[in-house]
Design a protein around this nucleic acid. Structure first.
Length: 513
RNA sequence: CGCGGGGUAGAGCAGCUUGGUAGCUCGUCAGGCUCAUAACCUGAAGGUCAUUGGUUCAAAUCCAGUCCCCGCAACCA
């Protein structure tokens, strides 16, 4: 059985979760569920990143301890998981003892390997942005980030990143698919080729962090701290030999485009330094704009995932996010587009298809249909097209092409609606009742297959439909999967009730309140 | 010569890596059906794929130039 270890980044607790966090998590969940359905043993993890100066400052501002502050926000991230129906296997907080232990162990390993040295960092320091700049980088006496700067010297541990330039290039050469998509890979390559400078990996200007072993004046740089979570979650250091670990041999890190560098360069170098195999792939996605503009707190247009789940259900949000965005690119999150997709695809095409077929079976066949003894050419054509669709869907998901995957499924739904219209079972109830029930059975079976395809994206509704069909959910997924020879249908209800588009304003008000 | 993304039917997007009938959703118009969540099905109109030039038997797709739009303080997937 193939194993897979899928991770979200751990989310920084400086602010509450927004639609972007939800997106990354949902993408991972869909990928995890799909692979499980194909028979993989999937470990899927997420969590929160809680150390660092910004959290410390925010806590001070809020008048509480950093730990309390982190507790509060971390809870919002954790509580979002069931709301989004996420199937993660673990949730980590960087403030947990198990993680502290891993980070300190990892640090010692890096040091023993000779890749950490004590030096000092001096330069123009932008207090607000916690970053040093060279003289020639300053703009009008301020940092390029706009903050006031002062010249300081601070003792600091460094990681010899410069020693990994050639090794990284070689690694990229040997693993052409390491960074997805290819544009991001090219960015990484040019970054490496520009020349890598040693990385400052400790801080002394604040204390909210994991103390450096044997030198507790320093705390570990947040990114080193955060990245190490992937090891903590895989049992390191108790499970010291990660290179023989089946999960570790198939790690896929899903990340937003802004943090590719940390995963695809720094993290790889850290792991190389201690002799642990780098991840298999870093997969990066784009950003959501909000109603056409960049999402930001100051613009007040941050999209709240809780709101959409409350209004339309998590399945609808999951579907919209995966279908709307071409994976890897930026896209626009808009209520109107959300409702349009919901109504046209989930309500009209899919929901109505299920409803028209199942209620027909209830009304005309007393809820029971049995497998036909023979198929007509039309039936075989239809079934063949659905099976063919499923075969196309699998590679699309493996290639992270979620929007085209759903487009394919939408096409399969359309084929089913065509089949209903063309076969006109309602015209056969008196003349050819046998043929009528054959048609309905075939439809029920294809609906089942289509629903299986949709399951990773809309797990809640998919289970509901299977229940209506009276078929227990099984994880396995075979393109030519068959349902039982006799189907009993009971308790039908619409899967996705139509949204009244004239009520958008009201919906907004309701959602805010 | 700052960096990056983008310009494809009325709107929003896919296709561009691996050149070869321009595709999807919505909208519009005209039919059909009546099982169904006023849903479904069929057909039609609508694109010189920003622009110029080049390569080629053939370019939305490759190459070069030009124009235009968006992002690049912080928060942050």
């Amino acid at each position: 059985m193939s194993r897979l270890y899928i991770t979200t980044p751990i989310y920084y607790v400086n602010a509450k979760p927004h639609i972007g966090h939800a997106y990354t998590t949902v993408v991972c969940d869909v990928f995890a569920r799909f692979n499980r359905m194909l028979g993989a043993d999937v470990k899927f993890t997420t969590g929160t990143d809680e150390h660092g100066k910004k959290v410390e400052q925010s806590a001070v501002k809020a008048g509480i301890s950093p730990q309390e502050f982190a507790d509060n926000i971390s809870k919002l991230f954790r509580d979002l998981l069931p709301v989004l129906n996420i199937s993660n296997n673990d949730f980590i907080r960087t403030t947990e003892p198990r993680h502290k232990k891993t980070v300190q162990h990892f640090w010692k390993k890096l040091k023993d390997a000779g890749y950490i040295y004590l030096g000092e960092y001096s330069g123009w320091y932008d207090m607000r942005n916690e970053a040093y700049f060279a003289e020639d980088e300053l703009v009008d006496g301020k940092s390029p980030l706009g903050g006031e700067v002062q010249y300081i010297t601070e003792p600091c541990y460094f990681f010899k990143l410069s020693a990994f330039q050639d090794k990284l290039l070689e690694f990229y050469e040997n693993n052409p698919d390491f960074v997805y998509p290819v544009q991001r890979r090219n960015e990484m390559l040019s970054f490496i080729k520009q020349g890598l400078r040693d990385l400052a990996i400790s801080r002394t200007t604040f204390s909210w962090g994991i103390p450096v072993p044997d030198d507790p004046k320093h705390v570990v740089y947040v990114w080193l701290d955060a990245l190490t979570n992937y090891l903590t979650l895989n049992g390191y250091p108790d499970n010291e030999n990660q290179n023989n670990d089946k999960y570790w041999n198939n790690v896929i890190h899903f990340v937003g485009k802004e943090i590719v560098k940390f995963h695809a360069i720094y993290w790889v170098a850290f792991l190389m330094a201690v002799g642990i195999k780098p991840p298999k792939q870093v997969v990066s996605h784009g950003w959501w704009l909000s109603e056409g503009e960049k999402m930001s707190k100051s613009l007040g247009n941050v999209q709240d995932p809780y709101k959409y789940c409350r209004l339309f259900g998590s399945d609808a949000l999951r579907y919209y996010m995966l279908r709307e965005l071409t994976f890897g690119s930026d896209g626009n999150f808009a209520l109107e587009a959300f409702i349009q997709r919901y109504n046209s695809v989930l309500a009209n095409a899919y929901g109505n298809l299920c409803n028209r077929v199942l209620s027909f079976i209830c009304k005309r066949c007393n809820g029971v249909v049995t497998r036909p003894t023979e198929l007509l050419p039309d039936d075989e054509k239809f079934i063949g097209e659905v099976d063919g669709g499923i075969e196309q869907v699998i590679p699309l998901v493996r290639q992270y092409n979620f929007s085209r995957y759903l487009e394919k499924v939408e096409h399969m739904i359309s084929l089913a609606n065509q089949y209903v219209d063309y076969q006109k079972p309602w015209g056969l109830k008196d003349s050819e009742p046998k043929r009528m029930q054959d048609i309905l059975f075939i439809l029920a079976e294809q609906i089942y297959k289509i629903t299986k395809c949709l399951y990773p994206v809309i797990p809640h509704t998919a289970e509901k439909l299977l229940k209506q069909l009276g078929i227990p959910y099984e994880l396995k997924f075979i393109p030519t999967e068959k349902i039982p020879d006799v189907i009993h249908i009971t308790d039908i209800e619409p899967l996705f009730p139509r949204i009244d588009t004239s009520d958008i304003q009201k919906l907004n008000v309701y959602a805010e309140g």
